[in-house]
Amino acid sequence: MLHSDIKSRPTYTQLEPDLSGSQHLLIVEGDTVLPGRLDSLAGTFAPVEENLHTWLVGTQAGGLGLGKVWRLPGVADVVDAFACATRGYGIGDRLYVQGTEPFLWSVAKAAAIIGFSAEQIHLHHAGSLRRRVWCTHCHTVTEDVTTSIASCAGCHRHLLVRDHFSRRLGAFMGVMVDAEAPGEVPAVEESFA
């Protein structure tokens, strides 16, 4: 479980079915499933299995059946699936997402666009602590950052990864670390492995 005193970062909880919902969609980033963990999720969601869809995303998502199971190659396919959803999602739908933080917020944003409210979405952080970093200077997003200072994929400045999180961008803020004294870059630490 991810504990944090970053005020702008949401608190992530363990997933459990919200019995006030009538349809349940569980989306799991396959890489974040520990051995045996899918069994335990299956147990947790057994009460709603009749009305449960599970989307397993990425590799090695195991062979468990949790309701109706789909397999999707990557998070982009989840976003596409939402964008193309012909079935109208409504107030009875509940969405549960497990994965790394960038995965959680990619899915949550795509779901919000088709009408899911914050109360219908439950997010559980699992797996790597890697961060998506948004460059304050050129506004490019750099994915899979595990270090305290990262090179921006857009402008190539050295960005200090600040503990300030935007749900809208699903990203942490990156600020040029050597703006005041160009070239003075502190030691890079592996902070978000």
Binding site: K7, S8, T136, H164, F165, S166, R167, R168, L169
Partner: peptide, 12 residues
Amino acid sequence: FDVGMSFMEWHG
């Protein structure tokens, strides 16, 4: 970065 944030978030 901050647009759309709640009060606690933008004061983070």
